[in-house]
Structures are given as C-alpha cells and as structure tokens.
Design a protein around this nucleic acid. Structure first.
Lengths: 160, 160
DNA sequence: TCCGTTCGTGTTATACTATTACATATCATT
DNA sequence: AATGATATGTAATAGTATAACACGAACGGA
C-alpha cells in the first residue's frame, strides 16, 4: 500500500492510491448511509484518475462522454455531494475540485498550489487549523468550515 | 481615533475608520510611488463606505453612477490594483472584495465570514500564517501568497 | 402492497464572475 | 515637445454557477 502520508509533490503509485481511496470512500458511504450513486461514484473516479484539481466543466465533459447528463448541474451536484461529505475538496483559488486523499478521517487540509507546475498538494492542516480556531475564538467567532490555500513553489520548481 | 484593533464584529465609528484608512492609503501610495488615480481612489472609497465584502459588479455599478466606465474591466482593474498593493482583499469564498482595514503594515489576514449576518471580519493572521509556513516548509514548499477564510458564526449570531 | 414522501437525475434557461483585445488618453521623463 | 510606459474606455467573449421544473427511483409507513 502506498504511503498515505506521502506529499502529493512526491512520486507515488497513482493506481494504488486511486484504488485505496475509492475503497475507503465506498466503506465510509456505506457506514454513514450515504448513496454513492453512479454519477457520484464516476465523478470521484474521474477526480482520482486525473489526480489534479479539475474545473467543474472538465469533469462534466468526461461525465457526458460516459453517458451521463451533459448539463452543468449534473457535475455540480455530484461535486457538491463529494465536497459536502469530505470525499473531495473545493479549491477556490482555482475554481476547481480535487479528490480527497484521506476520506476516512475528518480533516481540514491545507492546499499548496505550485505556480511552476500547477500541482496541488493536500497538506495536513491540523496545526494551521488549530491556530485558526484560536484566532477566531479570541474574537468570539465559531468556525464551521474553512479553506486554507497557499500559492508558491514546490520543491521541484523552486530555484536552487 | 477608532481602535484599529477592534474586531469588525464590534460596533465602531465607520466614518472615522473610513477616513483614517483612506488617509493611510494615500500616504502609503505616495511613499511607494503608486498612482492612486480617481477610479482607484473612488473604488476604495466605495469599499470603505459599504464596509462589507462587495462583488466586482456591485462596485462597477457604483463607479458607473459616478461617471466612470461601465464595463467590467474598469472595476476589475481598480480592484486588482488595490488588492495587489494590499489596500484591499479578495475573499474568494464570496467572489468579493473588501477594503483592507490596516493598509499601513503588511499582513496576511484571516477572514471570518458570518453565515448569520454576512459580516466579514479581517482577523490578525500572524499565528495562522506562521503555522501555514511551517507546514509548507516541512514539505519543501515556499509560500508566496495565501488565502485563509473561515465561515461560521460571529458572537452576535451565535446561539447562547 | 400501496401510497405518499423524499431524494436523485436530466434538461432548459439564465445569472453571475472574469478576461482578452484593442483603441485612446494620460503621465513621467527626457 | 517627443517618447515610452502606464492607465482608461469599450466591445466582445470566456468561464463559473444556480434556479426552476419534470420525471423517476428509493424509502418508509399504513
């Protein structure tokens, strides 16, 4: 099994992580009584196959090829479902979506977007999330959800 | 002078903070050799007057009423200028813009968006930013810019 | 099993957000 | 005043997202 903690910037076994994540999502959905319908499942597969942040219309195009509806709501609804239940993430800076690589445990990840190669890594966000909660709490604000995104250069693209 | 550290969730003297921020921006622009042209200045004034996150088209509408061009690029260019130089912020979650309340010192704020009253507060982001940098660094990622946004309930809207 | 309700899908249409491209004008500098 | 860089105005279009409605499948209770 691929190292689940490997950074998305590192080389890893795509086929393996794809399979594992899908299995984890299926199990989660079953346990939580969620309906992982054909469109939803296929949408997740597409995100996993591409293994990158994809626009809703890119996803839609692929869904249409697979015989699903070709109108925007088809993609948006499936993507919203995945995001709502933690099986995918929305990256607002890119107006894009990406499969969650750790769907089995709740987490609020941080996204690192490389301006050199356009790769997007899902980094562990516990520390950042904790700091954010503390900051919010000091103002009496109760955080429900958050998005934390950074753009910069990944190790490969960074100058020496 | 209004307390510059007051949370946006607290009552405060809008007219006062408006004036102070505008003065600070004018000084900053002068010192840094930036051209705070009429559209740009008016755009900032609009954001300050409304004192909330505004869509580009809302801003555009007001600019048009004031005799400026009525096409989207007019608003987007002015807003981009303000954002690029730290005089305003872009809140991606809302596809909106808000005047920066502390334009005199560089900072990477955190945005707290209340789902109850739609208020947006600009909270100090040093701690969060530090945690984000640490997380990114551990993956060899060099952060250039980031956006950190949280949705939840402000003190006023939170249930007892 | 039948009925009603909820949920999911497909479709049409439209709303909202943002950028490209190009012409014109203004500014800073010589 | 001439030049090059910067800023503005406008037209056209690209890209992102949602509302509203019809239909049908899944679910739960009588």
């Amino acid at each position: 099994m691929p190292d689940p903690h490997a950074s998305a910037f590192e080389r890893h076994d795509h086929a393996g992580c794809r399979h594992d994540v899908l299995a984890a999502v299926e199990r989660e959905a079953r346990e939580r009584g969620l309906r992982l319908t054909p469109v939803r499942r296929r949408t997740l597969e597409i995100l996993l196959e591409e293994h990158r942040a994809m626009g809703a219309y890119d996803v839609l195009e692929r869904l249409a090829k697979d015989g699903f509806g070709a109108q925007p709501p088809v993609a948006y609804r499936a993507l919203d479902f995945l995001v709502d239940h933690g099986f995918a993430h929305r990256i607002r800076r890119l107006n894009a979506f990406a499969a969650c690589m750790h769907p089995d445990h709740s987490h609020a990840p941080v996204f690192l977007i490389c301006t050199g190669c356009n790769a997007v890594a899902e980094a562990p966000g516990e520390q950042v999330r904790e700091a954010l909660d503390a900051t919010a709490r000091s103002l009496g604000f109760a955080v429900e959800r958050s998005n934390i995104e950074a753009v910069g250069l990944c190790p490969t693209c960074a100058p020496e």
